[in-house]
Amino acid sequence: MSSTTIDPTPSRREPGGPAHAAGGSGRPAGLSTGPGPSFPRVLNAEFIKFRSLLSSVILLVATAAVIVGIGALASWGIGQALQSSGADPQRSAALAAQGDIAASAPGAGISFAQLILGSLAVLIISSEFTTGMARSTFTAVPRRIPAFVAKLIVVAVSAFVVTAVSLYISGLVAVPIFEQYGHTLDVSSDHYWRTLLINSAYVAAVAAIGLALGALLRNSAGGIMALVGLFFVLPIALQIIQGDVVKELRKYTPDSTLTPMTASQHFPDTLEAWQAALVLGAWVVIPLVLAGFLLKKRDV
């Protein structure tokens, strides 16, 4: 510890700064002497916090690896299937009935990506409560909601960008794989781009739900379990249970909204694309509003 005595000189303001530092008593009460936590500053701070954690970086890289890796594997598998079915007109027709199956191959890793990025979003806020960082965060931003919204933007935009870029790379990797099997994959069509962007927005929505769960539960394991429950356990449970009501409920789980939004045609027992978008929107907005309300109200 080199600097254990108080050295007033380096601690004082840089030249040109407000000259208040010399005498605290000279400052008028209740008047701040510099900028406060405006939203762009809070957003910048949350971005610094996000990128200065190794775990964020690792999970983003892992997401990209999973999307590209599983996309390549799926392209390879689907390419083989298409090639072998080429000789068989019946199977070929069956495959064609599922829409452009080749175009879906690059996005085969989405369900894993949503889990990783959803967990990352849970951790972004739950770790603040488990480590005590929340006290620092909400001391700097005592209105709290701006910090919460900034976290939402940072995590949702990161999820969207990483997913979109990874899907694009996954598509570029898939093209030569399909070519090997004599199939062309058009990664420049409007439909392909639309699907790519919807997939990315969907993953961003999952991240937003994760953030809300992390803020509500304030516990990393609990938040991730709730997310897994919502996206993996609930759909399986609803598949197992029989009945008309359950069959109807299946359409409204958040994970079942993706297919109707990206499909080139409407499948039976699914929502219309616009309905699915609304349902997913509700899954995002309701937990977020509840989390924001309680974040403002509860003690930190």
Partner: peptide, 14 residues
């Protein structure tokens, strides 16, 4: 009141 995985510098910077 600090995230344990962040450096002191980055904590203060944020």
């Amino acid at each position: 009141a600090v995230h344990t995985s962040r450096s002191a510098y980055n904590h203060l910077l944020a």
